[in-house]
């Protein structure tokens, strides 16, 4: 009985090796290191209205997946790359901000009757014109905002937008 337990201990490293090779074999491929990044978008000193999207465009043709995030109605955002909220890779980026200024009205599916297909799917404005950010911030080539994400952090950004 005792030498059988000994045998088990001899087999154990093989099992451990097997499990190890399993975990190595399924590791993520060409992922780059990402660092937690979050911040707030201000327009004229106040949080940007309406929410929207934020995207990092690498300035010096850097390889690796570029980060993005959703800006909430209070102007806050958290960048994600591979998993929600994991951050951005390090480097210099042009920041592109898209503002959502209208909302689609919630609709219900129609019936299958001819003529029932009326649709008032026009936009419902959620942001007054004075609170809308200039288009240049949504232009990936010309947005004036730039940031640098550093591995040592903390990457807490305050993006000041102006007219």
């Amino acid at each position: 009985m005792f030498d059988r337990i000994d045998n088990l201990f001899k087999v154990f490293p093989i099992i451990a090796l097997g499990l190890l090779s399993l975990s190595v074999g399924c590791g993520p491929g060409d992922r780059v290191e990402v660092y937690p990044t979050k911040g707030v978008v201000l327009f004229g000193g106040e949080p940007m209205m309406g929410g929207g999207a934020i995207s990092f465009v690498p300035i010096d043709s850097q390889a690796g997946k570029a980060a993005g995030g959703t800006v909430d109605k209070e102007g806050n955002f958290t960048m994600s790359t591979y998993d929600p909220g994991d951050g951005s890779m390090a480097g210099k980026f042009r920041v592109v901000v898209m503002q959502s200024t209208s909302d689609e009205i919630e609709t219900v599916g129609d019936t299958d009757i001819e003529g029932a297909a009326d649709s008032e799917a026009e936009a419902e404005s959620t942001v007054p014109v004075a609170k809308r950010i200039p288009f240049t911030y949504a232009d990936p080539a010309n947005s004036p905002l730039t940031v640098e994400i550093k591995p040592e952090g903390p990457n807490e950004l305050t993006l000041e937008l102006s007219k």
Binding site: S55, G68, Y82, E104
Partner: peptide, 18 residues
Amino acid sequence: TGPNSPVPDGVWGCRSEP
């Protein structure tokens, strides 16, 4: 935006599902 980008698509008629 890049393939499988984490940047939200800007479209009309979608409901976000990160």
